[in-house]
Design a protein around this nucleic acid. Structure first.
Length: 264
DNA sequence: ATCCGATGTCAAT
DNA sequence: TTGACCTCGGATC
């Protein structure tokens, strides 16, 4: 389900429980032993890096969660019986948070957490992160831009929707080599990523690149109403910039949507 | 009732 | 590059 913005928003929700001792169970049982170890210890707060979520408990122990494609959190009343697919239920008072379908849910110490950070690139949502350290590599790299934007070890937090939308907003052909994109343009891409992700977090984690808080792409003169995206999942529909049907193809093993004319 | 795709990643080839 | 992981909602029959 998520790209980095939604994960950050979920972390913010978790943070409302910071400082409290939580009841942890695993209705599905796959996380039962781990949950028991942390049960009733004080939740210190949530951290994120890209799409990775870290729930910190006492003694620098972290529950590392990656939602992957199917994972999700459901916030509800404790009186609602959890589905039997729920990997982890956290309870505080009358409230419960259910986690199901994560690609990852494991307990890590500080060292384990550091290893995760080490394999992730800068995150547009993280305080102090910048694209600066990536520029030398980008300058030499033959990778297509459309692959780079999905690569979490380069930029952490963007996903398939933002990839398509950002490429469109810059009029970039997805197959353009990294080295063919000017440094100033990379910096603009980074800044736009920050703006889009932050605006989404503020909205509660729902992606909408066509919104009034996003800049208009050069080729688009009017904001499309109704739609939340310029090209994502709009295969065959007319481009908002030029009317050309939006194309769909596979790039970096994900479906990419783009306008062959505006992104020539 | 069944099928299918999805805002993701990694290990194995 | 491909398959496995894993869940659920919406489309289809």
């Amino acid at each position: 389900m998520p790209e980095g913005d939604l994960v950050r928003k979920l972390a913010n929700q978790w943070d409302e429980w910071a400082g409290e001792a939580l009841l942890l169970t695993s209705p599905q049982h796959r996380f039962a032993t781990e949950a028991a170890k942390l049960n009733n210890t004080v939740f210190q707060g949530a951290h994120t890096h890209g799409k990775h979520l870290f729930l910190e408990f006492q003694n620098e122990l972290y529950v590392h969660i990656h939602l992957g494609l199917y994972g999700r959190f459901v916030f509800q009343s404790v009186s609602t019986k959890p589905r039997d697919t729920v990997r982890l239920r956290a309870t505080l008072g009358s409230q419960a948070i259910d986690l199901s379908g994560p690609t990852q849910c494991e307990t890590l110490d500080a060292e384990g957490k550091a290893k995760i950070h080490a394999r992730l690139g800068p995150d547009p949502l993280r305080q102090g992160d910048s694209i600066e350290s990536l520029l030398p590599w980008l300058k030499e790299s033959k990778w297509p831009v459309g692959k780079t934007l999905l690569e979490q070890s380069k930029i952490a937090g963007l996903g398939n929707i933002y990839r398509a939308e950002i490429l469109f907003m810059f009029g970039l052909n997805p197959h353009t080599a990294n080295s063919a994109v000017r440094e100033s343009e990379w910096k603009s891409i980074w800044r736009l990523s920050q703006d889009l992700l932050e605006a989404s977090v503020a909205r509660g984690g729902s992606i909408k690149t066509t919104g009034k808080d996003s800049p208009l792409p050069l080729t688009v003169s009017k904001r499309p109403s109704q739609t939340r995206a310029y090209v994502y999942k709009r295969t065959g529909a007319p481009c908002y910039g030029c009317g050309t049907p939006i194309l769909q193809e596979e790039q970096a093993s994900r479906t990419l949507y783009w306008c062959p004319s505006c992104q020539a």
